[in-house]
Design a binder for these strands. Structure first.
Lengths: 195, 195, 195, 195
DNA sequence: CATGAATGAGCATTCATTCAT
DNA sequence: CATGAATGAATGCTCATTCAT
């Protein structure tokens, strides 16, 4: 029963991801999400405050999962260069595995005023901080150059990955995103490795 | 006469940029744009097909200006490394000079279904191609490494700049964007310069 | 429950007839209909597709009732001449009983593009066919002359009744419509009775 | 020049008939009429008060012509029965000759609130009075029965003709309207001729 | 007389959210 | 907990009409 409740919540969340990706946040109708989730319209409001928070919940909960996965994969690696490479690889893999979710993250999230203006995307900061930590550690250990601030680099890497992934999605996923990610990894490593 | 008409069109365009940036595309009201432009609601429809095309016109016309400015600044420079640096510097300058327009480009444009799905952002491709050309030329002349595809690099640079600028805008323009841009330039140059 | 829903639908239909008759189809506001029906604007759209279909539904449902009433009144009569007379009498009675509905039928229906161009007024044909059947039967039995086609006569009788009723309504219902109808009945009977 | 002015007025009137018939009164745009007449939008307002009066002017001026033609054709005839027959024949001929105008008369005129409620269609009364006069004269001379009021008969005949013509137009003018008119003439004559 | 750019009133429709059952 | 009928706020766009040129 408790399980059934959690399951229903998840059905709604998955339906929302699917409908947001297909129709866009503004044109997505609660009734369509409810229909796809197999619940009544009103039921959604028993699990989520409103449409905006449904979007935000997608972000927070999926981001939480992603952060956990990425951390688990990176922690055992010793070399910070390899950690960075792994991070970039995983970003591509995650996009490839879940294009609908990626679409929601890259396009639809920006359509929520609540998300863009009022809500502080803590989980996003946390995700970026994984990158900043790698950089900081690499700089401290002497692996990486120190000319660039970790806060700048984390955004540069993320921005590059994000734009690359967005293009891949909008262009119809026609080329090899993993290969592009690989080139990006080489680029950034060449840029920061102490020679 | 012709001037007055062109002027009115520009007033509408500027008002739209301002209102879109303040309220977001979906919450921006035509009546508010009209009011800020000092024209009647209906007048807007003498110059633009509809709200979507108003947004698209902002993109096309402003992008055209930007492309021209960037090309003019880059052409006389001989070194491709310096060209790339100049491009990055200018991106930051343009964002600093016109934050409202930047906001529209980075956030609001994604809210138009017409823009995202039906319209081909030719001007955006053209803008990115400036970057790709620099990379291609640098690789051909031996200035740059050849391991990375120009098509990948152009998105990496743009994505990094875009994310950096977006953060600067959303965080309230509290730090020195030009300095961040400078670090990015060093990062990318370190990454691609043939040693 | 089911009754309450049907009742609400009927309240909307009656309100629409009343408002269409008062203001004309184009100038009638949905909000006014909703107000007169005691429901919210949006509720109307739970029962009817749009304004056009509201008008068409009035026609179809009321015409259905009328056809039933007329058929029930005519069937037991043996003489076709008396049937025709009864039909004419009833037409006048129906107009007198429900002037708003008559106004909608005679004037407002023509303002709906959907009704005039796309929709096939099946119920109207069915109504006219009652007349055509009387004529056919009368001609077959020898009661009526055979010089006129039933299809022509049905329109002649209906047109005469309709124009007479329209004038009565537009002139403010100042004279005795039943008496005019009676004269029309004599006219048509004189015209078609086999002597 | 004086001629040119009258000519321009007529071009506008013809364009209006054509556009009203094609698009319907409400959906007809002044700009389309102006375009079809080869004048500027504003010019129409130099010749007609507004859209409503444009419709009314069509009615009045064309009706005037029709009344004149019908009177001219009927006056020389001596027998009132033959006059009635001639009237009916001419109605059909006029509809056949000018279907667009007929459409405007039968359908579009009812869409003008001004026409239906505020304006007194004097010319229409005058047209019907031709019929009433024939009946009155026939009844006085003993040709026609006296049981029916001329005022009732005139509407009956007109209504029958109008409905018949409307059907002919809406059904795509596929059958012989003149033959239907002929049957109607026989019907009404049988109905009123003193035997 | 003629033009046509500018005006601005006017309204159907959608859909997130609520709440009685 | 779940339902889904009902609500009602909110706004882009059209087009008859005007009037400065």
């Amino acid at each position: 029963m408790g399980k059934s409740k959690e399951e229903k919540r998840n059905r709604i969340l998955q339906a929302a991801i699917s409908v947001f990706a297909k129709k866009g946040f503004f044109h997505a109708k609660i009734s369509e999400i409810a229909n796809e989730a197999g619940v009544a319209d009103g039921t959604i409001y028993l699990y989520f405050q409103n449409k905006d928070h449904l979007l935000i919940s997608i972000f927070e909960e999926k981001m939480e999962e992603i952060i956990t996965r990425v951390r688990r994969a990176i922690t055992p690696i010793e070399s910070n260069a390899e950690k960075l490479q792994k991070f970039i690889e995983m970003h591509a893999s995650l996009v490839i595995e879940n294009p609908s979710l990626s679409h929601v993250f890259q396009v639809e999230l920006r359509q929520s005023g609540t998300f863009m203006k009022q809500y502080k995307p803590v989980k996003f900061q946390e995700f970026l901080e994984i990158l900043a930590d790698i950089v900081r550690d690499g700089q401290k250990s002497g692996e990486f150059k120190t000319g660039i601030a970790p806060g700048v680099l984390k955004r540069a890497v993320f921005g590059a990955l994000d734009e690359t992934a967005l293009n891949w999605i909008l262009k119809g996923r026609k080329y090899d995103l993993a290969e592009s990610a690989n080139q990006l990894a080489q680029l950034f490593l060449s840029g920061i490795l102490e020679s």
